[in-house]
């Protein structure tokens, strides 16, 4: 990509080595990630406090002890979710909440489209792995919560460091470059504005 980038929109992402938090539930929708009643802010601040709000807290705001984010055994910058992660509402607040809480990478065997795009646009790397490798990751974390996972964006690999088992993942080269450099799309689109204006001037209708 040879366009001039003006703004580093979020942290650069290259190699992330971290323990991970397991959430082996399928079809985790964005209403669970951040319930609608917490979407009333007009600034992008504080969403991490309400990440998985209703799974994480009782109605009286006491923590639910059996939820993984309340279990001190599990921590890290990688969230590993079940199949079809991020379905439902297009709310980017879900990705913001994940980022704000401290995750930089979400791993699943399948992602919902809009959620995946939202993550890529704000600097959270969605890593789609095979169902078999997802099972291996869950098993490894439950066997040893201190086990480390390495996500290498340049090489497009995800590795269980204890055993060296790894898989490659897909990401398009444009988005990969953005993530590696902390760029976002707006500067790119701004840079081709004359082309956009010419296109608009020649629309058939």
């Amino acid at each position: 990509m040879n366009h001039k980038q003006q703004i580093m929109a979020y942290d650069k992402f290259n190699i992330l080595r971290s323990t991970a938090v397991p959430l082996p539930i399928e079809n985790i929708d964005t209403d669970q990630i951040i319930p609608a009643r917490f979407l009333k802010a007009t600034e992008r601040v504080g969403f991490g406090d309400n990440l998985f709000r209703d799974w994480r807290y009782n109605p009286d705001n006491t923590p639910k002890k059996d939820f993984v984010l309340n279990n001190p055994v599990f921590s890290g910058k990688i969230l590993v979710g079940g199949k079809n992660f991020g379905s439902g509402s297009s709310r980017e607040h879900a990705a913001w909440a994940i980022y704000d809480y401290g995750f930089r990478c979400v791993v699943s065997s399948f992602f919902a489209d809009i959620f995946r795009g939202n993550c890529l646009n704000i600097g959270v790397l969605p890593v789609q792995v095979s169902p078999e490798f997802a099972e291996k990751i869950f098993a490894a974390i439950f066997a040893d919560p201190k086990t480390e996972i390495e996500v290498n964006l340049s090489a497009q690999t995800i590795t269980l460091l204890a055993t060296g088992e790894k898989e490659t993942f897909d990401i398009n080269s444009y988005k990969k470059n953005n993530m590696l450099n902390g760029f976002d799309d707006i500067d790119y689109l701004q840079s081709i504005k004359p082309e956009i204006e010419e296109f608009a001037a020649n629309l058939p209708l």
């Binding site: 297009s90 980017e92 607040h93 990705a95 809009i114 646009n121 707006i186 689109l189 504005k193």
Partner: peptide, 13 residues
Amino acid sequence: GIGTSEVEMVLAT
């Protein structure tokens, strides 16, 4: 449907 980053893209470009 789109996310908020994309809303900003559409407004801008």
